[in-house]
């Protein structure tokens, strides 16, 4: 990417800041969102490491910084 292009990205990014919108509170989730979350949870059930118990127990790191 050229410098001009990087600058373009930067400007666009800064223009886009108006977009930030809070999500609806947990108590008032709309239906579409709940459906979305359901699909996501289905996905998680599929991809979560099998044998969570064993995996989590065996995940031991040496302390770093």
């Amino acid at each position: 990417m050229s410098t001009e292009k990087q600058q373009e990205h930067l400007n666009r990014h800064v223009d886009e800041t108006e977009e930030i919108q809070p999500d609806v509170g947990n108590g008032e989730m709309d239906e579409e969102f709940v459906e979305d979350l359901d699909t996501l949870l289905d996905e998680i059930d599929e991809i979560l490491e099998e044998d969570s118990q064993e995996f989590v127990e065996n995940y031991i790191q040496r302390g770093g910084q």
Binding site: D36, L40, I47, L48, V56
Partner: peptide, 28 residues
């Protein structure tokens, strides 16, 4: 253990397994 596993897997850097990355790809 499943709850802890989910916590850990949020930080997995694999695009097919990492939960944060899945959320990002699905626009969440």
């Amino acid at each position: 253990a499943h709850v802890r596993m989910l916590d850990l897997q949020y930080h997995d850097i694999r695009p097919d397994k990492g939960l944060y990355i899945r959320l990002l790809k699905n626009g969440h």
